[in-house]
Amino acid sequence: MKFKRVAPVVFTGMALMGVAACGGSDNKSDTASTPTATASASTDEAAVQGASDVKVAFSAPAADHGWLKALSDNAKAKAKELGIDMKVSDSATTSAEQADQIETLIQDKPDVLVVLPNEGEPLTPVAQKAMDQGIQVINIDREFSAASAYHTLIAGDNYGIGVQAGNFFADQLKCKGNVAEIQGIAGISVTEQRSQGFADQIKKRCNGGIKIVAQQPADFAPDKGLTVMENILQKNKDIQAVYTHDDDMGEGVAAAIENAGLQDKIWMTGAGGSKAVMNKIKEGSEWKATFLYNPAMSADAVYLASLLGQKKGLPGFAAPDIPSKIILSATTVTKDNVDQYMSLGF
């Protein structure tokens, strides 16, 4: 009877030791998917000759959203283009889950670990652990709380998106009017920075001429954007414009405006640069602009990883090493320049 209870534990232990001894399976990631928009610089032949010898691991949160999907796809496509057999973990829905996945990736001893953290702060320790083990870390977008936890940060400019939006609203409204702000997820750096940049720039440019009469989070979800905006419209009939933190979420906000028949009175902006929104900007709907937050930064991160793994610097740069911070500027996409950026839409 005792043996029956103990046997499964013993056999499981033996199986695990066997896997450890054999080194496990190769577990190649599926890199067949093509990117929605790969806008990274064309790959320099000489710089990536030995790229296929570099072991790269990639970690990102679950791609349950247009921008994240494009980001994952772009990374995989760039790895395929460079001939890198990149291990991918992009199914985590929480920071704790992603930390576990990164721990697993570290076991495989990659040369470079490319990480878009779900949140910067909670994933700093595991990134630091990788760096301490000699694994170079490239941090995408959401910055780790310690600079020692990454070799290079490549990020979009969230504060810059807010600033660009502030400028756009100041210009369009001539520094006079009421606006609503539909934010992303409360408490994360992306939301805080996009909000702060907007508030700072409006204050700087208009000194109280533009009032943010409503400011509510809608969790980057279109259905939440819809209900939040519907409620805001009940109280604030005199809104001229809406600043939303995300294109997908903005679709719900747009639905609320259209359902209320206010598309001729209220205009809005998004952020991210989805193809659907760019098309609406082109058509001349209530969407006036979006602020580009290019998901091709992940492709650039994989390219940088291939250089870093070969101990090469950026081609054409005098400095022998890759810069520690690369911040991609925010771009305002309007009806006037939308054709120029349509290829970057996801």
Binding site: D64, H65, D219, F220, A221, P222, D223, K224, L226, D248, E251, G252, A255, E258, N259
Partner: peptide, 12 residues
Amino acid sequence: GRLASASPVSGN
């Protein structure tokens, strides 16, 4: 019907 779209992240 309200969103005029089917979103995979709705209903959370």
